[in-house]
Amino acid sequence: MGSDMEGDDEEEESAGEILRDRFRLSTISIAEAEGKKNGMQISEPIVACVSDLAFKYAQQLAKDLELFAQHAGRKSVNMEDVILSAHRNDHLAASIRSVSNDLKAKEPQSERKRRKNTRKEDKSNADSKGNCSEEEFEKEIPKVNFIHYPLVFIVTLIFPLHHRVSRRGQRDGTMQG
């Protein structure tokens, strides 16, 4: 059992390093863009330093979010938890709240239904499935329906018309010739 645990630890560490590198790449692109916007060059160690700080912050955030969710008696982290974790600065909290409102406005699906679903999931089989796939599916299916039915309708209407017109054109052409 002990050797097993050590193997797991090593694997975890390498996974953590890969994640840290990917995180650093994202941070570099964000920082460079921000520097360009301010007309500033950024020396490389500073970008690396900021990236490490952000990574540490992300880990701390994960811990906070887990504790907040547990305190609320949930097993999945909510937007409310993230807003709560930004409470130390009022401006930050306000801007995060406005972003969350934007995200909510994007899919004003019936919230009661979703809440019921998530509650059920929490109780029964939330862990065996992907974390967010179900909700995403719920959001996407109606959109696809709304976009596609009119499209199909238009195509079925226009295609015969177009066909008829083009055939008439051909016929006219042959008559002229």
Binding site: A58, L61, L65, E66, A69, Q70, K75, S76, V77, N78, M79, D81, V82, I83, S85, A86, L92, I96, V99, S100, L103, K104, T118, A126, D127, N131, C132, E135, E136
Partner: peptide, 14 residues
């Protein structure tokens, strides 16, 4: 613990 999609997007923004 798990996180829902919007919570993750919000964390990215943070």
């Amino acid at each position: 613990t798990s996180a829902n999609a919007n919570a993750l997007k919000l964390s990215c923004e943070l």
